[in-house]
Amino acid sequence: MTRQSRDAGETLVRVGGVVFVLGTLATIATMVPLFLDLPRLPSIAWGLSMLMPLGLLVALTGLFTTARAESRRRRAAREAAANA
């Protein structure tokens, strides 16, 4: 179970990183027209910019999941060593 939790956490970190990068690209794409005096992009592009904080949240959730799984693993190893 511990290994599965760690794998789930690592997967969340990777997925969060990808979502964060997509949100960053969307943010750059929506900001460039403002600086270059080009026509503004539609509202959906601004909505895609919200992927950036969502990706950060997913990645942080993965980090906390991995940390908790590692903590449980260490505690179980300590208890097993104490009982042996």
Score class of each variant (00 low, 15 high):
79 E>G: 03
4 Q>I: 11
66 T>N: 12
53 P>G: 00
1 M>R: 08
51 L>W: 01
44 I>L: 08
4 Q>V: 10
50 M>F: 07
62 G>C: 03
12 L>G: 06
27 T>F: 10
21 V>Q: 14
83 N>H: 15
23 G>C: 03
76 A>S: 02
18 V>D: 04
4 Q>A: 15
29 A>Y: 03
82 A>Q: 06
29 A>C: 02
48 L>H: 04
6 R>M: 15
43 S>F: 10
59 A>T: 09
30 T>Q: 11
45 A>N: 01
43 S>Y: 10
8 A>V: 07
41 L>M: 08
61 T>A: 13
32 V>G: 09
82 A>T: 06
50 M>N: 12
3 R>F: 05
82 A>D: 08
57 L>A: 09
42 P>S: 03
14 R>S: 14
3 R>S: 11
48 L>V: 00
77 A>W: 03
73 R>E: 12
79 E>C: 00
57 L>F: 06
36 L>A: 15
47 G>C: 05
80 A>E: 09
31 M>F: 14
12 L>D: 02
16 G>N: 02
48 L>S: 04
62 G>K: 04
4 Q>T: 13
16 G>Q: 00
50 M>T: 11
43 S>C: 02
13 V>T: 12
26 A>E: 07
5 S>Q: 13
28 I>A: 14
51 L>S: 03
65 T>I: 11
46 W>K: 06
65 T>S: 12
76 A>R: 06
71 S>H: 11
72 R>P: 00
18 V>Y: 08
15 V>E: 09
12 L>M: 14
50 M>A: 10
36 L>H: 15
66 T>V: 10
40 R>M: 12
45 A>P: 01
83 N>M: 15
15 V>K: 07
12 L>H: 08
69 A>V: 00
64 F>H: 11
74 R>D: 12
50 M>K: 02
6 R>Q: 15
48 L>E: 01
49 S>D: 11
62 G>T: 05
44 I>D: 09
22 L>N: 05
78 R>Y: 00
12 L>N: 06
18 V>G: 03
63 L>I: 14
35 F>V: 14
71 S>V: 08
38 L>R: 14
22 L>P: 00
46 W>S: 11
75 R>C: 06
28 I>F: 09
34 L>Q: 11
63 L>R: 13
46 W>D: 12
67 A>M: 13
32 V>A: 13
73 R>H: 05
31 M>K: 12
